[in-house]
Structure formats: C-alpha cells, structure tokens
C-alpha cells in the first residue's frame, strides 16, 4: 500500500453537476469513467430526436491502455500528512467527470466524441488577396 495523505477542504461550491458526473468525498481504489458524445450542430434549430448511432469507428474501436504491471521503484515521502485547500469553486461538471476529494489508487478515464456540423447551403468563397 502506498502512502496517502488526508485531504482537507474547508468549502466546496459546485453550481452544476450533470451527465453522470460524480463528487466523491473519501478514498477510492479504482475509477473507470467513460463518456460517449454524439454532437450534431445545425445552422438552424432543428431536432428530430431519433438521430445518431454509436456504430461509428470512433466509438466501436477500443483505445488501448498500457497494462499496469510495470515495475517502478518510486519512493514517496510526505512531510505533511495533509493537503489543505480553503475553498474550491467550480462552475460546471459534465460528461462523466469526477471531483475527487481524497486519495485513490488507479484511475482510468476516456472520452469519445463525434462532432458533425450541418450547414444548409454552400458559402460564397472568399476572394484570395493578391
């Protein structure tokens, strides 16, 4: 077991917490967080509600993570057993993000995003300067 300190936060203010985000107070062992986003931007406000699939290669192909079996001689010394923070102020937490007050051991986070822009007409090409 590696050495872990005690996190001490006096005040934490979070305005918005959405889309499977987490505030974790206390120690954890393993965190595995995944987020798939399909974003479709249109020139006009038009929403069918049945669009988009997660069959695209960006979602179906796995991102390779290195195995955690590397032996590594790390000696950590903590002169103080505390991490002090007086005030944390956060506007928004979204899309499988995590606020973690406390120690953990292994963290794995991944995000896969597909972004499509839908314009309704071809733009006039800008003239090249001479």
């Amino acid at each position: 077991m590696f050495q872990r300190r005690i996190s001490h936060v006096n005040r934490l203010n979070v305005d918005t917490l959405i889309f499977s985000s987490t505030i974790q107070l206390g120690d954890t062992k393993f965190i595995d967080s995944t987020n798939y986003t399909f974003a479709l931007q249109r020139e006009q406000e038009l929403f069918y509600g049945n669009e988009g699939t997660f069959n695209d290669p960006v979602f179906t192909e796995d991102i390779l993570f290195a195995p955690l079996d590397e032996s590594f001689a790390l000696n950590t010394t903590h002169t103080s057993p505390f991490i002090h923070i007086d005030f944390i102020d956060i506007g928004g937490v979204t899309a499988s993000s995590i606020i973690h007050i406390g120690s953990t051991q292994d963290v794995r986070m991944q995000a896969k995003i597909k972004n499509i822009r839908h314009l309704f007409a071809e733009r006039e090409r800008r003239r090249q300067p001479r």
Binding site: Q3, R5, S33, I85, M109, A111
Partner: peptide
C-alpha cells in the same frame, strides 16, 4: 468547467 471524462483530484 470540468468536462468530457476529466478528473479533479485532491489527494494521492
């Protein structure tokens, strides 16, 4: 903001 599977960690 903290977005797209991000992590704010206060600890070890």
């Amino acid at each position: 903001a903290i977005a797209s599977s991000s992590l704010l960690l206060v600890g070890d």
